[in-house]
């Protein structure tokens, strides 16, 4: 069939874990935007949802660190964090190994990736799923770009990964939705937690909404680290989602919410 949806959203663990510390006037419109994204995805009647995250040492560590990975499991579990800390209960999520295998095989025509029959979801996937699939009904395929342990794949390779994802989605009969998750600027899990560079975020999202490939790929990691923090490296996930869609984007929601440690973002892009 084709890629039927491409969007991006924030995934910070505070979004659920520290919900009670947030100002409802900021928090509730963000949750509403997440729910609108859920409805938009459901309306595309996807056979599977690919959640492309930038995980945080739940499955991948510097002992053997893949730049790019895709799940090929029968099922997955999460969260790996303490459910009381994240305030998301454990769930088993159904996968589709046959569909994964076909997508992975097609992507391998142009990109190298690691396939994974085992995958435990951390907040990078669980926070989005908590909002986007509250009833745990969707078939999910996890994907990952290493944004934590340098050396990191260059941005142009995140773009190539997104393009390969699109080609693979278009090559299978199933309807595929894609959600990429991550922060724009943020300094998570440090004393700086809550620092947000709104100007940098808005400029990145301006480039994302316009699907301006050259402008999105022009950031150096040094600039990103300086202006967007170590969390800013997760723009790789957003870039891949743009590469998959390559249409006109819409920023549905952006508001810095310091207790969530990120400029909370919901956006989607037409499939061109």
């Amino acid at each position: 069939m084709t890629l039927v949806y491409s969007g991006v959203c924030s995934h910070g663990p505070g979004i659920t874990g520290r919900a009670d510390l947030a100002d409802p006037a900021l928090r509730d419109p963000f949750y509403a935007a997440f729910h609108a994204m859920r409805d938009e995805i459901a309306a595309t009647k996807p056979d599977a949802l690919i959640v492309l995250a930038a995980e945080h040492f739940a499955n991948f560590f510097m002992d053997k660190m893949p730049s790019f990975a895709i799940g090929m499991g029968e099922s997955y579990t999460g969260p790996i964090e303490d459910p009381d800390w994240l305030k998301i209960p454990h769930r088993a999520v159904k996968g589709d190994p046959d569909l994964s295998r076909r997508i992975i095989a097609e992507m391998m025509q142009t990109v190298d990736l690691t396939y994974c029959e085992e995958w435990r979801f951390d907040h990078g996937i669980m926070v989005p799923l908590h909002f986007l699939d509250p009833a745990n009904e969707l078939t999910v395929i996890p994907a990952n770009i290493n944004c934590q342990g340098p050396p990191l794949a260059p941005l142009h390779r995140a773009w190539a990964f997104g393009e390969a994802l699109r080609r693979a989605a278009d090559a299978v009969p199933e309807r595929i939705a894609l959600v990429a998750t991550g922060g724009i600027s943020h300094w998570p899990a440090t004393p700086d937690s809550g620092k947000i560079n709104e100007e940098w975020d808005r400029e990145f999202m301006r480039r994302w909404v316009a699907c301006d490939k050259d402008a999105m790929l022009s950031y150096t990691d040094e600039e990103t680290y300086r202006d967007g923090g170590q969390g800013g490296f997760e723009i790789r996930a957003f870039i891949a989602a743009a590469a998959a869609a390559q249409g006109q984007g819409t920023l549905h929601f952006y508001t810095p919410i310091p207790i969530f440690a990120v400029g909370c973002t919901i956006a989607s892009m037409e499939i061109a």
Binding site: T190, D192, G194, Y225, G229, Q230
Partner: peptide
């Protein structure tokens, strides 16, 4: 590593 502190010791950007 990457997780340096860039705020002041008495600065609490998220109020905590």
């Amino acid at each position: 590593g990457l997780y340096a502190m860039t705020t002041r010791s008495d600065e609490k950007v998220a109020g905590l």
